[in-house]
């Protein structure tokens, strides 16, 4: 089954536009500041819905190689990788670790804070 339009991202986007265009001008002070944070959060959700599905399957494959398991759950795979780094079984000298870390962090920033100066500098380099 496929859900009907609007997509989840489109629904969030409509809500964000309403808050930005109609509600923000009505507010001042603390609540205006909090609303700006809230609309930024909705923008994160929109980007996550758009970017994450493809990134997740790529990162799953990299994590399965790094951890040597075929688990499907990315969160569990990441937990396992974290443990291996902590135990020093996986280090920066391990094939693929550096690539995985950079790729996953660049995906996170593309979703969380695409205007972060370091992200833009790395992306443009």
């Amino acid at each position: 089954m496929a859900m009907d339009r609007p997509t989840a991202a489109e629904l969030v986007s409509a809500t964000r536009d309403f808050l930005t265009d109609k509600i923000a001008p009505e507010l001042s002070g603390f609540n205006a500041f909090q609303l700006r944070i809230a609309t930024n959060v909705l923008a994160i959700v929109e980007r996550e819905l758009e970017i994450y599905p493809d990134a997740e399957s790529q990162e799953r494959a990299m994590l399965q190689t790094l951890t040597g398991t075929d688990n499907d759950d990315v969160k569990l795979l990441e937990r396992e990788l974290a443990q291996k780094i902590r135990d020093r079984d996986v280090t920066l000298k391990t094939d693929g670790l550096k690539d995985y870390l950079w790729q996953s962090v660049m995906t996170k920033l593309a979703i969380d804070q695409p205007r972060y100066a370091r992200y833009r500098a790395v992306k443009d380099s």
């Binding site: 909090q34 944070i37 809230a38 930024n40 959060v41 994160i44 920066l92 550096k98 870390l101 950079w102 962090v105 660049m106 996170k108 920033l109 979703i111 969380d112 804070q113 972060y116 370091r118 992200y119 790395v122």
Partner: peptide
């Protein structure tokens, strides 16, 4: 919402750490 949102700023420090260490 402010505290929730700051959770998504941890990734900023991750890219900074990678730039420093890797």
């Amino acid at each position: 919402v402010e505290r929730a949102a700051i959770g998504r700023r941890a990734s900023e420090t991750e890219i900074d750490l990678l730039s420093l260490l890797a």
